[in-house]
């Protein structure tokens, strides 16, 4: 009897745990959708590569340290396509002393503006006027801001690269799918978006309402 009791208690706690997670709207790692399905086709290397010399921040900006010590910052592939095609509208001014967490770039999906935050402290040396207002075909070439910074990119708590970045990116797409479902956003056939379980579908876009933009910034663009 004791054996059954202990076993039942063990299984009961696991069950309660699952139920609690359900209520909180989270998923257990064992039962969340397998990441492998996101390996394909988004990550077959042609669609969204994760270059090993880049660092990624949680605010969906990428950072690259050039040989001259300047750090280039751009929007990562998630940011450029999450809710449709992103057009960069504004950059910070050259010469500004930028603090981590301040707005570095502003862009728009359709008529809704989103703010990207600076992942790093530093003083802005130059900005890339070419990217403003244009459709970005290659996110890693389209750098927005060049700045000089004393911060180290090796800080693993703030920036990640390699496999880690890859896994994080996959999870972000899973999260995005949930986000779109939760906000019951409609998908329209304009532009390009990551909707559809990570499939790049052309000519679709998400119809955004104001509240969902705020939530989007909170969920995906905060550092």
């Amino acid at each position: 009897m004791v054996a059954i009791f202990v076993l039942a208690l063990f299984l009961f706690i696991l069950l309660v745990d699952l139920i609690v997670l359900r209520i909180q709207g989270k998923s257990h790692p064992a039962f969340e959708p397998a990441l492998s399905q996101y390996d394909y086709p988004v990550y077959d290397g042609n669609v969204i590569p994760i270059p090993s010399n880049l660092f990624f921040s949680k605010g969906h900006t990428w950072l690259k340290k050039n040989k001259d010590g300047l750090i280039e910052i751009g929007i990562d592939p998630f940011g450029t396509t999450a809710l449709g095609t992103l057009l960069i509208q504004k950059c910070v001014k050259s010469g500004k002393e930028l603090k981590r967490g301040e707005v570095i770039l502003e862009g728009s999906y359709g008529n809704k503006t989103v703010k990207f935050l600076s992942p790093i402290n530093g003083s802005v040396k130059s900005i890339n006027a070419d990217v403003i207002g244009k459709k970005i075909s290659n996110p890693y070439k389209a750098w927005g801001v060049r700045l000089i910074s004393k911060d180290s990119l090796e800080n693993g708590n703030l920036y990640f690269g390699g496999t880690e970045a890859l896994n994080w990116m996959k999870k972000e797409f899973i999260k995005l799918k949930g986000f779109i479902d939760d906000h019951s956003l409609k998908v329209e056939l304009v532009g390009e978006t990551m909707y559809d379980g990570g499939l790049l579908s052309n000519n679709t876009s998400v119809l955004l309402v104001d509240q969902s933009v705020n939530d989007f910034e909170k969920e995906f663009l905060s550092l």
Binding site: G45, P49, I50, S52, G162, T163, L166
Partner: peptide, 14 residues
């Protein structure tokens, strides 16, 4: 093995 995949990706890309 685990990391080679991603390294190939980046090499191809650059």
């Amino acid at each position: 093995t685990a990391k080679s995949k991603q390294i190939i990706l980046s090499e191809r890309y650059e």
